[in-house]
Simulated scan of single mutants.
Amino acid sequence: MSSSTEVLDPAFQGAGQQPGTEIWRIENFQPVPLPKSEYGKFYMGDCYIVLQTTSGNGGAYKYDIHFWIGRETSQDEAGTAAIKTVELDEMLGGSAVQHREIQGHESDKFLSYFKACITPLKGGVASGFRKPEEEEFETRLYVCRGKRSVKMEQVPFDPSSLNHDDVFILDTEKKIYQFNGVDSSIQERGKAMEAIQFLKDKYHEGTCDVAIVEDEKSDTESDSGEFWSYFGGLAPIGKRPIGEDDVVPESTPAKLYSIIDGELEFVGGELSEDMLVDGKCYLLDCGAEVFVWFGHGIKLQERKAATKAAEEFVASQKRPKSTRITQLTQGYETDSFKLKFEEK
């Protein structure tokens, strides 16, 4: 553990002491522990820090820290989550691998921590977050999409949100409807069934009727008619429009930059691990993923500056939202990072 805990956030005291998942939400630019009953619910206007502790060799713990950025959060809140992630890593001894998670583009590793799915919801702390016991039931519409990793999120409760390509879940007080777009995949439909069980447990005390509604089937069928009645009757729907979230980042030949006082400087020559010098920070740009490497002895303020530099670099390059940023410390490199130095 860090010996300089007095400069770190007290909200992290005691973190990482046993295997499992711990979550903090950024509230007024400070991390606040999230009740376990709220795990899996992520508000689009907020940022979260997720610590996953696993048992390693010899009884030591391994740490992965993810900071999740909601689609409607502010740049300042996102920056706070990134910096607080560095502080948490410092408290854990600097051995954690840090991952940036953007809503809608979460990594498989991040999603694996949650039993069925994560549920991004409209709103956030700034819009007046209410505790679960204060909430009244709200009819919500969700979309499940993705071919390999299926993700779920709340969408506007409006027929214009529906399309032929995805699976939708309409969660009402008495019944949950699964609407299968005619061009949706088997994976999306299967994941939607898992999500429905999650919603039943979360909002219906485990008991609720479920109905499957098939796209392009007559609204005279009982369940189909009930489903469309929530939207004011059968409405025409189309294909899902292509948006910014559909842009897939391209992998490019790795380029190495040194980071000094938050500024990047290109390091020329054939890529080699010998270029990574103790006591320095580096950014390895691989297009679809950007790595930040901290050498031994890097001070907390230098790590924070490097973190900010990486965020600014990705933004300046106008990379897609799904571009990954992974931060790691000398001696705790991931296999994917090491592999970049073996590719010729």
Rank of each mutant, 00 (worst) to 15 (best):
D261S: 10
K340T: 00
E311Y: 13
L276T: 02
S107K: 08
K255P: 00
G70V: 05
C117G: 06
S112P: 02
S95F: 03
K239F: 05
E138A: 12
V155C: 03
H105D: 08
F42A: 04
G268F: 12
A315D: 05
G243R: 14
V277Y: 05
A78G: 12
S2W: 05
L88R: 03
I259L: 13
Y257S: 04
Y230W: 14
G124K: 08
R145E: 07
D246M: 13
L51Q: 07
G225N: 09
V50N: 04
F266I: 12
F168T: 02
G45W: 11
A15Y: 06
K147P: 00
P120M: 11
P159L: 10
H204M: 07
E270P: 01
K299G: 02
T334P: 02
T139I: 14
D335N: 12
H296R: 15
M275A: 08
E133D: 09
G232L: 11
H66L: 06
R100E: 02
E90L: 04
N57S: 14
I260A: 13
H99D: 00
R324P: 00
V125C: 09
E136I: 04
T139K: 15
G206S: 13
K175L: 04
L88Q: 02
G94S: 07
A309G: 01
G104Q: 11
D215H: 13
L199P: 00
L256M: 05
V143W: 07
L111V: 07
E333G: 03
D166P: 00
G56H: 10
W24S: 04
